[in-house]
Amino acid sequence: MVEHVICYRAPTTVVDVEAIANWLSERLSVPVTVRDRFLDVHRNDDTDLAERFAEARVPSPYERETGNTMLGTIRYEERALEHPERSGGVLYDGVQVQRALNAALPADERGLETAHVAFLDRAIGTWGDHDGRWHKRVNVLGQPALISVPGLYEAPAKPEEYYKEQQRHALLSGDTPPREVLENQVEGEFLIEDDPRSTDALRGYALQASHYLAHGKAFCDEEGCCLFNAHYHEELLEAQLRDPLFCADHEQLYG
């Protein structure tokens, strides 16, 4: 049984973790507290987090093997830990990152009675055996639960017109158009980087983390419920930002 939820800030992002923690505390019967960035709070000389992140790097979207532990890469990861605002553009195996962060937790906080929810400024993914490629994710549930703020914008599929415009621009100019160009030219609802709706959109993902440890089930099957695992931006917006936030069953638990 979950007795305490600890949320960790992502200071390089627009996400207000205190607001998310307050929302959780209104729906859970356990204390919800906020700590600074997970990679600062639980980093010490014994964790080797820079090397573990280097090992979790995804070099190719179509290759299962991960990791680049050359000295230059480890130095990059060390700088990213010290200066997170300078990092970006790298995809990490979310399961490997989760294992590394679990090992960094104090032994007396590693049990399932404490739900750690780490908001990250890193892009994380999981390997899809069904199609032989990596998929970006908003979250990876477990201990600790990882919530990727970049994943909120990048993981769910955008409207089809977005990708058509992306291809059209590439054919005309030979490169990928800047994200802001596509966002201005394509109609349809989707979240963009640093979207002011980010905090509200991630509340349900934080609740999924606690729900998973407490009940053993990751997601809800009802599309309109904020515990639903959305694969498209339209689904995400419907589940996270529109009332009612819960299906009938989860309304009884958290409404």
Rank of each mutant, 00 (worst) to 15 (best):
G142P: 07
I147A: 07
I20E: 02
E26W: 00
S87N: 09
H233C: 09
G142M: 06
E187L: 12
P31E: 04
A206G: 10
Q240E: 14
A123R: 12
E113P: 00
H116D: 02
V34I: 02
Y162G: 04
L253D: 11
V140A: 02
L101D: 04
I124M: 07
F190E: 04
V2C: 00
P59Q: 09
G204T: 05
P61H: 02
L39M: 10
Q208I: 01
G255Q: 09
R43P: 01
E235N: 08
G67I: 02
I74A: 03
F53T: 03
S173T: 15
G204S: 07
F119W: 08
D93A: 08
W134N: 04
E234I: 13
H169G: 01
L112P: 10
T69A: 07
E3S: 13
N44C: 12
E63Q: 13
E51G: 14
P244D: 11
S25A: 15
A230V: 10
P11C: 06
S60I: 01
G128T: 09
E85L: 00
V90C: 08
L71V: 13
H130G: 09
L182F: 06
G88L: 02
E193H: 12
V30M: 01
G67Q: 02
E77F: 15
T73A: 14
I124W: 01
V17F: 05
M1W: 00
C226A: 06
S173C: 10
T69L: 15
K164C: 07
N184E: 15
N139K: 00
L191S: 05
A230R: 08
T73K: 10
Y8N: 07
G204R: 04
Y92K: 03
V97M: 12
I74Y: 03
G142Q: 06
R110C: 06
A50G: 08
W134E: 07
R43K: 11
H169Q: 06
F53A: 05
C225Q: 08
N68R: 10
R37W: 15
E18D: 15
V90F: 12
P31Y: 01
